[in-house]
Amino acid sequence: MDIGARRSTFKFVLVVVGMFGFGFALVPMYNALCDAIGLNGKVKMQASVAEPVQVDTSRTVTVQFVTTVNGGRTWEFRAEEASVKVHPGEMRAVKFYARNTEGRDLIAQAVPNVAPMQAAKHMRKTDCFCFNQQPFAAGEEKHMPVVFMLDPALPKDVDTVTLSYTFFEVEQVAHQGAPAQPKI
């Protein structure tokens, strides 16, 4: 095999290794894009700083709440009000109700999502049950708070925002807790 062929083989192998890495590099790139433009309705999982802003009373936006439990589980999970009307800039507190209907302890994590996606980065939450994992004893019920504000920069054509929460069981943690169960 001549030098030229060996050299180009080597180059192509480098490209293969590089592109394998590129596949993984797409992950942080995608997440950065989601943070920057709210792609796919992703919202921050940490509390925002509550800066006081001018409340824009000329606009009223309906915020609807959607709740889902992942994987066909029977937990009760709902917003205590199906929807609220807010002015951009106004801080608002709502409560979500959840009850563990399964006969065992479990730990749940809620994942939020906002539609339409251009509203995602204007949804500011200073408190949310989704910021932490929520432990539920068997049969335990909870009233969980969400404090949020839509910032006044919300695009003018958005008059309805849907905030959705999906509850997932954090299986690994639940597994660790499982051995204690038979003793109860």
């Binding site: 490209v15 293969v16 290794v17 592109m19 394998f20 590129f22 992942n70 994590q109 954090v170």
Partner: peptide, 28 residues
């Protein structure tokens, strides 16, 4: 040469999501 390694990466992420507790594609 450019895209088959990307597929290999994607299915590797699926594998680690299922068996090694990564969360590339797991919303929870």
């Amino acid at each position: 040469i450019a895209v088959m390694p990307v597929l290999a990466g994607a299915v590797t992420m699926l594998l680690t999501d299922k068996y090694f507790l990564t969360s590339f594609f797991t919303a929870s």
